[in-house]
Design a protein around this nucleic acid. Structure first.
Lengths: 168, 168
DNA sequence: CACCACTACCTCAGCGGTGAGCTACCCCGG
DNA sequence: CCGGGGTAGCTCACCGCTGAGGTAGTGGTG
């Protein structure tokens, strides 16, 4: 019977507050813990490519968008789920390193067009396989069926929270 | 066919980099997204009780430990998974508000003993049911069977990462 | 019993994010 | 064609955490 840290916590609550049903923690607490493991593993991977998670996040969004690899800060803000101030900061760092460029939009005087440079695309394409290998490696403890089942349950969970994607 | 944000991202990668197997993102990306939803929901709950997540985390650890509700900063550091500096800061805030007290250990001159005050215990016991209700509410979109299955898969995942609890 | 590797806790500079607020610009209605 | 609500992006003060480093105390060893 190998338990995890959450089993310990649940046992403590069962002893101290037997009147409360702490079962939800079994799901939610574990998600928080796993996210931390994911974060640490990814950070180590990104560091090998002179990147950090926020930078990778932006570069990947631009790369995913396809040629000509352009998005506005607002679009980046929506996919990254951070505030506009955070995106400004990220773009400052990436522009400084020559991985992206900022230009004003021709059709909308307020908008900025962020473009992935060749160097930026090269940096992302170099890091991406390693990143995927890291994620793949983390999942090797689960069977393919378990992985699929887990992905499915997590999607159901997200959808049930009303987090539908922002229209194609 | 309701998809989530991750389905959109996976479709983009499939178009731009059909040579790569991005399936692992289906699990890991969703965990990150869910953690963010959890964080936001919990923050709103804690705010209703004049608390924030780091404070609740410490108070809950002390409460869980059982009477006399005492732990060292090192023990708190291990359960909270943050650095010692972060714990020092958290304890400063909680001590300021009279929710915990700090005293020196009698048996070990280096150690500090953190004790939950009556006010601290009252604050936690007031927030805890609301906190559980929030978590319960987030999960209502999944059936009881799905919740159990999800908790089980997440535990397997954590255990497979070698994150066994730090010995009773 | 003096030494020393180890542990507990605190300090502090730096980092990335938030949230409020600003300016510039868009565009609809009167 | 002008006014005004809405949007895009940036600025800035603040916040919590990290990671490196410092001090004090512990306990085994020769």
């Amino acid at each position: 019977m190998t338990g995890d840290a959450m089993d310990t916590i649940l046992a403590q609550w069962a002893r101290e507050r037997p009147d409360l049903d702490c079962a939800p923690m079994g799901v939610i607490g574990r998600i928080s813990q796993l996210q931390r493991e994911v974060f640490l593993a990814q950070r180590a991977t990104f560091a090998r490519h002179d990147l950090d998670a926020p930078s990778f996040d932006v570069l990947a969004a631009l790369r995913r968008a396809g040629a000509p690899y352009q998005l506005t800060p607002t679009a980046l803000m929506r996919t990254a789920l951070v505030t506009s101030g955070a995106i400004t900061q990220r773009l400052d760092r990436l522009e400084e390193r020559g991985l992206i460029t900022r230009g004003r939009s021709e059709s909308d005087g307020r908008a900025v067009v962020v473009t992935l440079t060749d160097a930026g695309r090269a940096a992302l394409d170099a890091a991406l396989p390693d990143h995927l290998e890291t994620e793949h490696g983390m999942l090797t403890g689960l069977t393919a069926a378990e992985q699929a089942q887990l992905a499915d349950l997590l999607r159901r969970f997200l959808v049930s929270l009303g987090r539908t994607p922002p229209e194609a």
